[in-house]
Computed example of a mutant assay.
Amino acid sequence: MVTVVGGEEPERRMGDRARQQQGREVDELLKEMAPLPGARDLLVAVKDCGHRLVPASSAQQRHVEVFLDMLDARDIDDDWTTSAYVESAKPAPDLLQVALKKSGAPPDASRVMADDSVWDVEAAKRAGMPAIVVRSRGLPAPSPSMTPPATSRRHRTTPHSPDAPPSPGPPGCGARHRPRGEKHLPSHPQGSTATDDRQ
């Protein structure tokens, strides 16, 4: 991120110190963080559809551990990444490529990125992946002129409302929302990281 914002010279001069300070800032904010409503239900629904799920996080290892526990997602995710896996963080596509390898999916499998960050969507673009954008952080709704037509389920972007009930999942997946703590032992068909091409 230092390179993206300031170029190579600031990265050489202060990149490591900036990342250490960023880590300390996140440490202080962890107690104020909470998952979006329905976040875990979404992960379970994706797995119930038979897809592979690998969060491509560029957070530091200790923070990823906290996030996984917040979501109670260790038995849902197939694997995950941290900042330690790559030298270039998002918007570089490196972490997404690592996540795809960790998924064990074949190179020609469908895949999709879902996130609320501009840098993550840019990383997906550079990796040649479609992206599903989750609106959060109090961002205003896009104007109609900025909203692309919903031509398929895979390319549709749906605004998230904190008051909205959990989605039942795409038809035909047999999704059921498990109680927290129930063990999930998914089968892993040859498929995608987290996509829905079953029309």
Rank of each mutant, 00 (worst) to 15 (best):
Pro10Ile: 06
Glu11Trp: 02
Glu11Tyr: 04
Met14Gln: 13
Met14Arg: 15
Gly15Ala: 06
Gly15Cys: 00
Asp16Tyr: 05
Arg19Phe: 11
Gln21Val: 02
Arg24Lys: 15
Arg24Asn: 09
Leu29Cys: 02
Leu30Ile: 09
Glu32Phe: 11
Ala34Asp: 13
Ala34Thr: 15
Ala39Trp: 04
Ala39Leu: 06
Asp41Trp: 05
Asp41Ile: 00
Leu42Asp: 05
Val44Cys: 13
Lys47Gln: 14
Cys49Asn: 02
His51Phe: 08
Arg52Ser: 14
Pro55Lys: 09
Ala56Asn: 01
Ser57Asn: 05
Ser58His: 00
Ala59Thr: 07
Ala59Glu: 00
Ala59Ser: 15
Gln61Cys: 05
His63Arg: 00
His63Ile: 00
His63Met: 00
Val64Leu: 10
Val64Phe: 00
Glu65Leu: 15
Phe67Ser: 04
Leu68Ser: 10
Asp69Thr: 07
Asp69Pro: 02
Asp69Val: 02
Asp69Met: 02
Met70Trp: 01
Ala73Gln: 03
Ala73Asn: 04
Arg74Val: 09
Asp75Leu: 08
Ile76Pro: 13
Asp77Phe: 11
Asp79Glu: 06
Asp79Pro: 04
Trp80Arg: 06
Thr81Leu: 07
Ser83Pro: 06
Ala84Ser: 13
Ala84Leu: 09
Glu87Tyr: 09
Ser88Cys: 11
Ala89His: 06
Lys90Ser: 08
Pro91Met: 09
